[in-house]
Design a protein around this nucleic acid. Structure first.
Lengths: 154, 154
DNA sequence: AACATTCTTGACACATAGTGTCGAGTATAT
DNA sequence: ATATACTCGACACTATGTGTCAAGAATGTT
């Protein structure tokens, strides 16, 4: 019931790009340093992000990545689903190893409940975008600046 | 981002008890057969369910389990949290193995977002009870009976 | 009293998935 | 040329999940 590091690092990396892209592409090295994430792991992550068009790459010196869409259209839900596959709470249809597949799936009240919950969680995750996180970040920066000012005059 | 089998089996097992307890305790053997779940795994699961008072046990011949509270007060959220611990999407504070702990946690926009989502998911899960699933089950049984009848006269 | 049933508890084994690392390769700017 | 950076696939390690097992304790039945 937790989001993998792949998913969470991807969110942070994309937010990093959104915040620091001033025209020249953002390199994994730069993201790695700012976010303190292993660069080799980021490579793997960006491989997937690129394949679904969530980022665009520029190769060679001074290369790096741009966002592939505007921040408001990159939702946390889409990032997680890119990194982890569809939102699923139950795996009734593909049982773990030795267990036989569950029978009467369509009639299973519990399974219907999980499916319903999956849908609601999906809505939650799709409701947050990188664009929103960018706004939150800037808001937080502003507040921190004000706090510092207030400390300095007190 | 999925519920463990422990959690899901626990939900099914508790629902099974709610549906089939007619006064005499429900044995793991009976649950195991009806739900097609390994009895030895159920033992482990019920160990936890008992410790938090979600079920009451009766030992010896004709022993088994009763629900420890009324079905409406046993929420899916409480079951999952009993089996898996608190709802958490991120593990920023306890990083995996070699990684250093993330710094500036309180200022991290991403982390705040995960925490907010955790709260909303918690509300979703707490909003469903075994009592509700019992109603759903009976409703479904009724519909199935009607369908059979309609087939028989067509 | 002997026995079968059933819960109780802890330890253990196996499989899967997550979390990264690594190396060889390709594209590009200087 | 050379250094920078993305590209791609394979691999290794670890943690967690998913169960199994055995020995024990309580209780009803004969």
């Amino acid at each position: 019931m937790y989001i993998s590091t792949r998913g969470r690092y991807a969110v942070r990396a994309l937010l990093d790009i959104a915040l620091s892209d001033n025209g020249t592409p953002v390199s994994l090295r730069a993201i790695s340093e700012r976010q303190n994430l292993p660069i080799s792991y980021l490579e793997q992550i960006f491989n997937r992000l690129k394949r679904v068009g969530m980022v665009q790459s520029v190769r060679g010196v001074n290369g790096g990545y741009h966002l592939g869409r505007i921040p408001d259209e990159i939702t946390v839900g889409s990032i997680i689903k890119t990194m982890e596959g569809p939102i699923r709470l139950s795996k009734c249809d593909e049982p773990p190893s030795k267990r036989p597949a569950c029978i009467g799936l369509d009639d299973c009240v519990a399974r219907i409940m999980w499916k319903t919950l999956e849908g609601k969680i999906d809505v939650l995750l799709e409701g947050i975008s990188i664009g929103q996180l960018v706004k939150d970040s800037k808001e937080m920066e502003k507040r921190k600046a004000v706090n510092k000012y207030e400390e300095s005059i007190s």
